[in-house]
């Protein structure tokens, strides 16, 4: 593993951040379907968008790590393929949103899509790799997770703050976009009294 074990503070929190943002996204999709308040749809879509960016960075960093630890940019591993499918599903979510013109239709269709996509993402990226017969990726298949390694505690001490920091970073990026959309939304709803 050498010094690359330090990637634990970068590659792994990317995925944690993505899952955190997607959880917020799907919770707000459900809220939207209950209330039909466009603000919930804005939160849901922006969180998913930032989540996908973190997912893409997770894929890119993982690919580089794999090149120098396993010898190839990409291996047909349950964890790698599952995560790639999961990210693609959420890319499809963003494309679906862009392809619909009517705002309320866009919000409804994508909310329903995200309620289906989120459990599938968890299954593909987390549950199925865990059940896989053989996987090189730590924490899936019969390999041990990082918490089973005789990790020196210094790494653990930086890992948990790193996870919290990256999740905070992702949430902050999402709030920037959400506040921006809220400004447009409030302006538009002031123009057309309903």
């Amino acid at each position: 593993m050498d010094e690359t074990v330090r990637n634990l503070n970068y590659h792994v929190p990317m995925w944690f951040t993505m899952i955190a943002l997607l959880s917020v996204s799907v919770a707000n999709s459900i809220k939207y379907l209950k209330t039909f308040d466009m603000r919930y749809d804005i939160i849901a879509s922006k969180c998913a968008g930032v989540g996908v960016v973190f997912g893409l960075m997770g894929l890119a960093t993982g690919s580089v790590w794999a090149r120098f630890s396993w010898g190839d940019w990409w291996t047909t591993d349950a964890k790698l393929n599952g995560a790639a499918i999961g990210v693609l599903m959420y890319l499809a979510y963003l494309i679906l949103r862009n392809s619909l013109e009517d705002a309320s239709k866009k919000a409804r269709v994508s909310s329903v899509y995200s309620i289906f996509a989120f459990p599938l993402f968890i299954v593909f990226a987390w549950v199925l790799p865990k059940m896989a017969a053989n996987s090189m990726h730590p924490g899936s298949g019969d390999t041990v997770g990082f918490n089973k390694y005789p990790l020196n505690n210094n790494l653990r001490m930086t890992f948990y703050p790193a996870v919290m920091g990256w999740i905070a970073m992702g949430w902050w990026l999402a709030t920037l976009l959400i506040r921006n959309e809220f400004l447009i939304h409030d302006k538009q709803s002031n123009e057309i009294p309903d």
Binding site: D2, E3, L173
Partner: peptide, 26 residues
Amino acid sequence: SNGKIYVVVTVMSIIFTGIIIYLVRI
């Protein structure tokens, strides 16, 4: 070399670049 520390540097650069590009888009 050096226990593959440059792999970590590359990973950090990827994330840094990604976030900067995203901030420019925002």
